[in-house]
Amino acid sequence: MDMRAVIISTIEAVASEQGKALKPLTDDLVLLDSGLDSLCFAVLVTRLEDEVGCDPFTLSDDVYFPVTLGDFIRFYDDAARQQAAPTLAA
């Protein structure tokens, strides 16, 4: 699964549903300037959890919020990799 493609298409779908105009979705786009409000992000995280099977915000113990779109995609990529990897404790 191409995480970037899934995230970009989900962002576009959420923005269109919520009637928001998006800035061009480049890696260095600062999320807070993207045109999405906090409800859009809430919807995005829930939809992605459904699509990719994980919510990195809940998985991670750190309080971390990605700043740019590139950070956001990496955050999801890392979480998906971690989840797929067998844990030593298991």
């Binding site: 906090s38 809430a42 919807v43 995280v45 829930t46 915000f57 809940t58």
Partner: peptide, 12 residues
């Protein structure tokens, strides 16, 4: 409600 890291909860 479903828990959400951004808004606390969202509606499903």
């Amino acid at each position: 409600a479903r828990a959400n890291p951004i808004t606390g909860a969202i509606v499903v």
